[in-house]
């Protein structure tokens, strides 16, 4: 859990603390402001694991695993319906940045307002 998440309930309950919290929040990373370009588009198909979708959730995967799977999609080594077509649109470097963001704790990515 990030410090941002821990601050949130307090922010909701007590508005009088808002100025202090604003300062604290500014110092912590915003929810997915730090997301790699392209990462936000993944969640259109890949939701939280709790949804129980046939499209696998990306939660709980190590960055190296995601990079390896994307490589396998790109090369055709792993069979796919659409991921082979999508993976070819990303460079190695872009994939790595997205994978590192996806490997962050779930709460940091699927936070609801």
């Amino acid at each position: 859990m990030t410090s941002h998440d821990m601050m949130r309930p307090k922010n909701r309950r007590g508005r009088s603390f808002a100025p202090v919290l604003v300062a604290a929040l500014a110092a912590s990373a915003p929810t997915w402001a730090g997301a790699a370009p392209g990462a936000a588009a993944c969640t259109g198909c890949h939701g939280p694991a709790a949804l129980g979708s046939a499209i696998p959730s990306l939660d709980g995967h190590a960055a190296d695993d995601i990079v390896a799977q994307m490589q396998a999609f790109r090369s055709g080594e792993r069979e796919a319906t659409v991921m082979d077509r999508i993976a070819r649109g990303y460079t190695e470097e872009e994939t790595r940045a997205i994978a590192e963001w996806l490997a962050k704790p779930e709460a940091a990515r699927h936070a609801q307002p």
Partner: peptide
């Protein structure tokens, strides 16, 4: 070099899988 459509030749299992993915995409989004 990226993107494109489903293959023109594919077994019915692939079409079935894409129909299932379509439903689940709708639920997720």
């Amino acid at each position: 070099g990226a993107g494109g459509t489903s293959p023109l030749e594919a077994p019915s299992s692939v079409r079935e899988l894409e129909a299932a993915y379509a439903e689940d995409w709708f639920r997720t989004i």
